[in-house]
Design a protein around this nucleic acid. Structure first.
Lengths: 225, 225
DNA sequence: CCGCGCGTACCCCTGAAGGGGGATGCCGGA
DNA sequence: TCCGGCATCCCCCTTCAGGGGTACGCGCGG
């Protein structure tokens, strides 16, 4: 908000850095405070220069952009990372986003859009190139649609049965679940019997799989810890 | 490419429809071919009008935008859906994207951006409002980072042990795994013992949880079916 | 007012899973 | 060359999970 956005350019290609600097210099509200040619230097520079936004190339010698981004989270948490890449590679996209990047742009993005993007991430929002957005959406659309067959039967479970299933899906034994829910183990066993019957499953292991596949529980979801 | 983009406006609010029509009419490359006030009418209209892009409100009487979008996939697969909503609700976002929407915009989007968005989705790309992008990225970032603690130990497993673990995580019994791998069940049991020991887990149920949490297996991943 | 779904609880019995050993053959590095 | 890791196989024994069945109180709707 106050003053121009401080940007650090990280790319191993001299020409690309020069080009980016030229483009960004044309905007008065952007201040290019530094450049780095690889991930290691980038982290050091970010620590010293405290940029608002780091324009980070993915593919670089010594330390790639993903690893550098991950490190930045600890070193300069205020810096928002905008990944730049020539080709969109799924692994890169998800790797970068998991590492904490705020955006992912292709290098074929038009200059005005790049400038707008920098302001967007500086404001705390995120953005992706349209084609990248497509791959991300596809992942959500294809990876999450809970198997309707099993998901449907999931609704056949009573609230209590779902409680039990959630605990099962966290690796608890019947006895532990009983303790967690303040009921007898025999009660839990009864619930388990009904769960397996309703879902058409054989044992608690398959119940756990069903819980994950239907989205009842989600990897990385809090749960408790 | 050829001619203007044919747009169908779907919103239960008369004023909103009028506003959208006014905004879109200002662009020569956009042709508003129809309007609908609820999901049911929207599906019927789309069938008849064959729009390139459907601007779809989420919250509507009779049939909401999510359900309508899902139906559109079967009725007018060529139509790309751009969801519009006042507030961003996580369930809406993921519901809409799973239903096949190409984009998700907040109604506070500026007119020029809306117009650009329509062209973007018409071109087959996707896009999300910056703040929506943020929630989507957060989901990816928080949902996928495999627990490093357990993930580290995962690498302690031998290739064979990982094979076994993957099958365990699909709900197979030791005997079934033995059949799948063409070895004796006793061998599988030995592998299981080592897996549990190396990962510091108690039983196969926890092993399944670990497999999902570390990303060894992923919900919705093929596996077999 | 009665039935039914739900949550609670118990019994008996079988089979699978897991812990504790021990053993073999193969292969690659010290 | 010999040792160690890996995959394979075996036995014994204990525990827990699941399948079968039964039961009882509560609340809600017919």
């Amino acid at each position: 908000m106050t003053g121009p956005v401080r940007v650090l350019i990280v790319d191993d290609d001299d020409l690309m850095r020069a080009g980016l600097r030229a483009v960004l210099s044309s905007d008065a509200s952007i201040d290019v405070v530094g450049e780095a040619a690889d991930g290691r230097v980038a982290v050091a520079s970010a620590r010293a220069l405290r940029p608002d936004v780091v324009l980070m190339d993915v593919r670089m010698p010594h330390q790639d952009g993903i690893a550098a981004t991950r490190e930045l989270a600890g070193v300069a948490p205020a810096a928002r990372v905008l990944m730049l890449t020539t080709f969109e590679d799924d692994d890169y996209v998800f790797g970068a986003l998991s590492a904490g990047a705020s955006g992912f742009l292709l290098k074929r993005t038009r200059p005005e859009q790049l400038i707008e993007a920098i302001h967007t991430v500086a404001d705390g929002d995120s953005l992706l190139s349209p084609s990248v957005t497509r791959t991300v959406i596809d992942r959500i659309a294809t990876a999450s649609p809970p198997d309707p067959v099993v998901a449907g039967r999931l609704r056949a479970l009573t609230a209590r049965e779902r409680d039990v299933l959630e605990l099962v899906a966290r690796g608890l034994s019947n006895a532990e679940i009983a303790g967690e829910l303040f009921v007898e183990e025999s009660t839990v066993k009864t619930h388990m019997k009904r769960i397996l019957a309703k879902l058409g499953l054989r044992d608690r292991v398959q119940a756990v799989v069903a819980a994950y596949e239907t989205g009842l529980v989600r990897p990385g979801a809090p749960g408790r810890e």
